[in-house]
Amino acid sequence: MKKLSAMLMAGAMMMSLAACGSSASSASSEAVSSEAASSEVASSAASSEAASAAELTTVTPGKLTMSTNAAFPPYESTDDNGNFVGIDIDVATAIAEPLGLELQVDDMDFDAALLAAQNGKSDLVMAGVTVTEDRQLVMDFSDSYATGIQSIIVKEDSDVATPDDLADKMIGTQRGTTGYIYCSDDFGDEHVTPYDDGLTAVQALVNGQVDAVVIDNAPAKEFVAANPGLKILDTAYAEEDYAIGVAKGNTAMLDAINGALEELKNDGTLQAIIDKYIKAE
């Protein structure tokens, strides 16, 4: 993008000189000079990016280590061959490439994924992570890259029709997520059962161990599609923005991530990744 801007600047300078009525020889000479200046600007920009990447200190040299909980499709999961796939995986890969780094994914429980980034055991955490006041006390966060909706899954014959109906029910959530936090705050810990991942929570709903599951809408759709007899309520429980977490004070990493995200947004790559996994209704 910076190279393109430099080329456009050079073109604008050439047009301005021509409009001033310079001789062909003069215009040609100045155009060559302008092209040289353009090349120098582009080279300087590339050098600046390379220097910025070189300043990054990562957990493992040459790698960008991402902690996650790969049980949250379509953001992160494993395919039939055991490969990590999903929105967060593709976005992290797109961030790593211009930095000259190879993405390394470390799969663990959600709480552990957050702690890994907090303690510098990973370079960043991506797992459909929502920015909250409590998390901001112990981590720094990037600009938002996706919007999530907390939805409610129930059995098709359930008498739960709105979030208010959860007041006297047992709710399943994924441990450490905002779904767990929201439900505990709204209905009390005694009405919330946390599970290690969303799939286990949904299985508890199928088995009648809980009355509902609160989880992000995108994985909720996949879980409902895979489990006949379940449905998602029309009324959303909450809406939130997802961001990338890094260790507190790691400004070099945070700046690199935000710079990459801006480029991915501007050139359409970020939206293309989201559209690849989440189809328009």
Rank of each mutant, 00 (worst) to 15 (best):
M1F: 15
K2P: 00
M13T: 14
M14Q: 08
S22R: 06
S28R: 12
S29D: 11
V32L: 15
A42K: 12
S47R: 12
E49V: 09
A53R: 04
A54T: 03
T58D: 02
T60L: 01
T65D: 00
T65E: 02
S67L: 08
N69K: 11
A71M: 10
T78G: 06
N81L: 11
G82E: 05
I87H: 08
A92S: 13
E102H: 03
D107W: 05
D107K: 04
Q118W: 02
K121R: 15
S122Y: 00
M126R: 07
A127D: 12
G128Q: 04
T130Y: 00
T130R: 14
T130S: 12
M139D: 04
M139T: 12
F141P: 01
G148H: 03
E156P: 00
D157K: 02
T173N: 11
G179D: 04
Y180P: 02
Y182H: 14
D196Q: 11
D197I: 09
L199D: 12
T200S: 15
T200I: 10
V202D: 06
A204V: 09
A204C: 07
A204P: 08
V210L: 08
V210P: 01
D211E: 10
I215C: 04
A218M: 03
P219M: 07
I232N: 10
T235I: 11
A238K: 14
A238W: 11
K248Q: 13
M253V: 01
A256E: 03
K276I: 01
A280I: 06
A280Q: 13
